[in-house]
Simulated assay, not measured.
Amino acid sequence: MKRLVYAAAAFAFLIPAAADAHRAWLRPSATVLSTKDTFVTVDAAVSNDLFYFEFRPLPLDGLEITAPDGSTIAPENANSGKLRSTFDIPLKTPGTYRIALVDDRLMAQYTDNGEKKRWRGKVENLKEIPASASDVVVIQSQRRMETFVTAGKTDETALKPAGKGLEMQPITHPNDLVANDEASFRLLLDGKPAADMKIEIVPGGVRYRNQPGDFSVTTDKDGVFKVKWPEAGLYWMEASVTDDKPSVKEASKRRSTYAATLEVLPE
């Protein structure tokens, strides 16, 4: 690498064109179950209409399932088809499970022999960029996408933040959400409150409405944001931030994104 170019325009160039048109999501078959010793099936996809399969499957790389005792468990029957990925989770222990897709990698663009090229991968594979490359831009991309399932009584062991990138720290338990009630959450960036950040919230069932019904809220100085759910159903929320605080020395900027699927139950 002959030189790094720290340019906002270059960073924008690295963001996939589909990012504005499509949303990535997880959808569990159920979020609250009365007993343990059962299963939930989770769908994972990228689509225009939330929670419908019409674009492509979501890769399951970086899947992390945290059990109520804080241990990590493996999915069963994981599979990726043409439009969605699916996997089963055995709920052998009572309590709350956290299902997350976590991704932390680098994106780059560079010029080699007069040709502009792109690269995406892990930091240990950065050597794949030719030593002869010039105008190299390296961006760290962090993403956490998650949903929550409770078998029996809710608890909070699995909800402990990892302290890396954007995360949501529930104040109201994510499996205790009720229509027309107000719920509170805290948004964290690297384990610290993320103030003055916008969170986009979109209810499912968009294809059956003339209006998308989306709305947004903003975190306060302590990273706290509150949501009053207008009706029961599945909701998708997302927040993102771009800063100059990558954890990888080769990168000049970082984009961190958090997304979650939450179910709101009737009154």
Rank of each mutant, 00 (worst) to 15 (best):
L14D: 08
A108W: 02
A183P: 04
F148S: 00
G121D: 03
A260C: 01
L26V: 10
R143F: 09
A12T: 11
E124D: 12
M237W: 04
A158Y: 06
E231H: 14
R27C: 11
R3P: 02
N180S: 11
L58G: 03
W119A: 03
K249Y: 06
P59T: 02
M107A: 08
R84L: 05
V102P: 03
D69Y: 09
F13H: 15
D243N: 14
D43T: 06
K221Q: 15
K36P: 08
A9I: 13
P246F: 05
V138D: 04
V42S: 02
P68L: 01
D244T: 08
S256M: 10
K253M: 14
G233K: 12
D220Y: 13
S184R: 13
P161D: 08
K117L: 13
P57A: 03
H22C: 09
T172E: 12
N48Q: 05
A9N: 15
A45R: 01
D190H: 06
G70Q: 06
D37H: 05
A179P: 00
L4M: 14
P90D: 04
A9D: 15
A78W: 00
G204P: 10
A179L: 00
D104H: 06
D220V: 07
S71Y: 09
A108M: 09
T72P: 02
L188M: 03
L159T: 08
A251P: 07
P230L: 11
L234Y: 14
G152I: 06
E267K: 14
T41D: 10
V206H: 02
A21G: 04
G114D: 07
R27H: 12
E115C: 00
L265V: 12
D104N: 07
T257I: 15
E267C: 02
T218G: 07
Q211S: 15
A19I: 05
T93Y: 03
P90C: 02
D155G: 06
K198W: 08
D43L: 09
I73Q: 01
D43M: 09
L106D: 00
E167Q: 08
F215L: 08
A19Y: 12
E156R: 07
G70V: 05
F11Y: 12
F225H: 00
F39A: 05
L60G: 07
V46S: 01
Q109E: 11
K164A: 09
A74G: 02
I65H: 09
L50G: 05
F11C: 11
I199M: 15
T66C: 12
A18Y: 12
E156L: 04
K226Y: 10
S216L: 09
M168R: 13
A30N: 11
L58W: 13
L26D: 05
